[in-house]
């Protein structure tokens, strides 16, 4: 499934471009790709011109990094502006986990051109499928996305049991899909959520597919950082 997701990502700009149509089409038509794959259809907000009120504390939790070493989320959060994404590597929904990793990849590109911001930002992708996403799998997955020196961590959990409280604390509902015979499938149903967390470990924004876009996310990162500085 991972190869399918990556293949789709490679074709996205072409598909996205075909979505551009005039306004006021008379009937609703299926839309294939989330807005995050295309150019933003409206001006991105100017960083620092709006508020992102805190949405509560970002919870701690024990995870494994892509070498298998134990890490805590709060250790990773400490003093950094965090973009946190829950994914699983075999996710087949182009508007699900692949969208999140695509958008974080686009943010990474912007960070590459902005060293000062990059030094204060950490991207974190956490698998909610520890049974299939081992540290090795996460390391392999990360190779497809991480570029240069950008700080992007790919984490998984020791077990579903150890992961469960983290998902609960982040209000991230995940359901293992089952076939007609009741047997577990490799796919999972979930609401895609990406979290922006400030240097004080407070959630400052939550994104889902309709509104997850690299231009928006980057403006929010800089808005949060400006607030921290002031």
């Amino acid at each position: 499934m991972r190869s399918l997701s990556l293949l789709l990502l490679a074709t996205l700009p072409v598909v996205a471009a075909s979505q551009q149509q005039p306004h006021h089409k008379p009937a609703a038509q299926p839309q294939v790709l989330a807005p995050g794959y295309s150019a933003l259809e409206f001006p991105a907000p100017a960083p620092g011109t709006y508020d992102l009120p805190p949405l509560g504390k970002a919870a701690n939790g024990a995870l494994l990094d892509s070498t298998g070493a134990a890490v805590s989320l709060h250790d990773l959060y400490d003093g950094k502006t965090i973009v946190l994404s829950f994914i699983y590597t075999s996710c087949p929904d182009v508007n699900g986990c692949p969208l999140a990793s695509f958008v974080l990849g686009q943010v990474q590109k912007r960070l590459e051109k902005d060293e000062l911001t990059a030094s204060q930002v950490r991207l974190v992708s956490v698998s909610f499928d520890p049974a299939n996403d081992s540290p090795d799998i996460m390391a392999d997955y990360g190779k497809h996305f991480r570029r240069g020196d950008i700080d992007w961590r790919f984490l998984t959990a020791e077990s579903e049991t150890s992961l469960s409280p983290i998902l609960d604390n982040y209000d991230q509902a995940v359901i293992r899909d089952r076939g007609p015979d009741g047997k577990a499938l490799s796919t999972m149903s979930h609401i895609l959520r990406v979290y922006l967390i400030d240097a004080d470990k407070r959630i400052r924004n939550i994104y889902s597919p309709s509104y997850l876009h690299p231009d928006i996310l980057y403006a929010d990162i800089r808005t949060v950082m400006q607030g921290d500085e002031s």
């Binding site: 609703a28 790709l33 929904d93 508007n95 969208l99 899909d177 597919p209």
Partner: peptide, 10 residues
Amino acid sequence: RLTATWMAAS
């Protein structure tokens, strides 16, 4: 299911 939806028909 609680799958990632961004619009009704997506």
